[in-house]
């Protein structure tokens, strides 16, 4: 057997995963072959460096969070979201606060999971707050908050058949579709999509009309999108435009001009709403 063939076995030798007769054969070869010995030494050095990490202790609050989620599990709306509870930074603080609150009241059913599950409002604050830092990261936080899973345009249609939306592969102005996401707003499905044109990022979010859209500390204002009236929230150069009809709230997050560029985008992602009669939103 040549060195090349022995080298295929050196990894298994290192991992102590060879039958005893094969191991003895490799061992004998290693005594005779300096090159293969060096290969083994290199692998030993490489792999022994992998586990060196500070003792990573489990956060003490983790079991409490799990237990709280277990207690609210029967309230969860569907198997799809039953095991998801993304505790990203802002939510973790919020959870801690909510735990103090609910423990104080002796009532554990009002944590953030159930808030998300019921979703009489949609929390855009998490998205808007992070926009100035990194729009994609901000969008990612929003997706995580609503249990996003990636899907295809076709899957999105099947997932949210009651919503009026499109996630076309391209948008006017040269934006190309990057990803489609399936979201869960309480018991009701929603859809989002991300687009890119060079360095320009654009995102769409479609959700069923809710009692309240929560924009955190950001104010929303009426605006005109073509012949329709919607509303918008501005954060720096970013704008989140909403156009709502009886079935769907269509949101577009971009840095585009609402008078010149957005009407065509809205017509592409919300064809029925955009083609329909003029309507008002939030009045």
């Amino acid at each position: 057997m040549c060195c090349e063939e022995y080298r295929d076995r050196i990894g298994r030798f290192l991992d102590d995963e060879l039958a005893s007769d094969v191991r003895a054969d490799v061992s004998e070869h290693l005594q005779a072959c300096a090159a293969c010995r060096l290969e083994l030494e290199n692998l030993q050095e490489l792999t022994s460096a992998i586990p060196n990490l500070a003792d990573a202790g489990v956060p003490s609050s983790l079991w409490t969070s799990i237990e709280t989620s277990l207690q609210t599990a029967p309230d969860r709306p569907s198997p799809r979201t039953a095991t998801r509870f993304p505790l990203h930074r802002s939510r973790r603080w919020a959870l801690a606060a909510s735990l103090v609150f609910v423990v104080g009241l002796g009532f554990l059913g009002t944590n953030l999971m159930s808030r998300s599950a019921r979703a009489s409002e949609i929390d855009f604050g998490v998205l808007l707050d992070a926009l100035p830092l990194d729009a994609q990261l901000a969008f990612g936080k929003f997706l995580a908050l609503y249990g996003a899973e990636t899907g295809s345009a076709l899957e999105a249609k099947k997932f949210a058949p009651a919503l009026d939306f499109e996630t076309p592969p391209t948008l006017p102005g040269g934006f190309r579709l990057e990803s489609v996401y399936l979201l869960q707003f309480g018991n009701r499905p929603g859809v989002a999509a991300s687009y890119r044109r060079g360095n320009d990022f654009l995102a769409t979010i479609f959700h069923p009309p809710v009692e309240q859209e929560n924009f955190g500390t950001h104010k929303d204002y009426p605006c005109a999108i073509g012949k329709h009236r919607g509303h918008k929230v501005e954060v720096g150069s970013w704008k989140m435009i909403h156009l709502t009809d009886p079935t769907t709230c269509h949101c577009v997050l971009s840095q585009l001009d609402e008078a010149t560029e957005l009407p065509a985008i809205m017509a592409a992602v919300a064809p029925l709403a955009a083609a329909g009669p003029p309507h008002n939103h939030g009045e």
């Binding site: 799990i66 989620s69 277990l70 599990a73 039953a82 095991t83 998801r84 509870f85 993304p86």
Partner: peptide
């Protein structure tokens, strides 16, 4: 990321128990 590891650990056990 410690935050992401916490989230995913939580997901892991919730899914495992379920």
């Amino acid at each position: 990321s410690a935050d992401d590891a916490s989230d995913l650990t939580q997901d892991t056990y919730l899914k495992g128990f379920a």
